[in-house]
Structure formats: C-alpha cells, structure tokens
Amino acid sequence: MGGEALWDVKPAQIYSTLARLKESGGICEQTVDGDGEGPDRRVYAITEKGRAELTAWFDLPIEREHQRDEVFTKLMLALATGEAEPHRIIQIQRTKLYQDLHDLTAQRRLANPKTELAHILLLDSIVMHLEADLRWLEMVEARLDEIQRQPVPEPELRPRGRPKKNS
C-alpha cells in the first residue's frame, strides 16, 4: 500500500527496534517450533502495557520539533561576530534547499499517483517544509540590512562576589 519505497526497510533495523521494544516491555517474545519442517520461529506480540502506550500515542498530538535551527544560529553568529558573510550563509543554504527540492520534485514526478500516493504525500510534506524554509530564507535575505542596523545587545555587567562598599 502506498508504494514500495515506503515499506522498504532493512531487517537489521527491524531487529534492533524489536529489541528496544522488548526491553521497555512493550512486546513479548515466544518461540514457535518449526514442526521439523523449518527452523524455529520467534513470534513477537504486543503486551498490555504496549497496547496502552500505543493507544496513548495515537490519541496525543505530535509536538513539532521546532527550530533546533542551525541555520538561524549560523546567521546570528555571523552577524554578531563578523566571522562570516551572512549572504554567503544564505546562498549556501539556499542552494542546498533547492537541490533537495529539485531532487524531490524529480522523484515525485517518477512516482505513480495511482499506486504510490502515500509516497507522494510524504514527499509533498517534505517539499512543503522545504518551500517554507526557502521562503523564510528569502525573507531573511530581504531584511538582512535592517537586522544589521539593529545593535547587538550589550551584555549587562554583573559584578561577581560581594559588592564593594561605596565610600
């Protein structure tokens, strides 16, 4: 359903995930005999606790992972220190974002909307985030001069230790 790429996961990844879940008590493991025909099989089943956690996950909204935004940090530091050209930071980032967008749109064109819609929707989500990032960069670029004119706040000097006595 939704296209092959979406479900194409490596076995190693599955085992490590299962191990993690077992450790936290979300699932339990049973061994089933192979009835002499094949090897023994391990079967995993969800536990009571696991189901409760799953239900809770479905029920709660997802916190968006907000700007742990390195680009923003780069820009601010460049502005404050003068160690780098902020325009250059924008240009480098923009080229990267466009490259990603280019690749994604290319891939999106290759996806068949009749069989791989889930995949396309996932791609769209990424595309739209990239678009938002690009627009934001555009906005920053347009207002860069303005930011530069605003002074970097002087740190307030707080004397350490005991205050000196005034004479």
Binding site: L6, Q91, T95, Y98, Q99, H102, Q107
Partner: peptide, 22 residues
Amino acid sequence: IDQARLNGTPLEGAQLVRDKVE
C-alpha cells in the same frame, strides 16, 4: 546576486526520503 546550479539524479532524492523514514 546568486545562481544555484542544481544537479543530481532522482535517486539521490530517493535516498533523502529513506533518510527521513529512518
């Protein structure tokens, strides 16, 4: 003021998706 040359193949894009899924 700037030019961005975009190169690459759709395959790299596929990799990007995979990374996101992972």
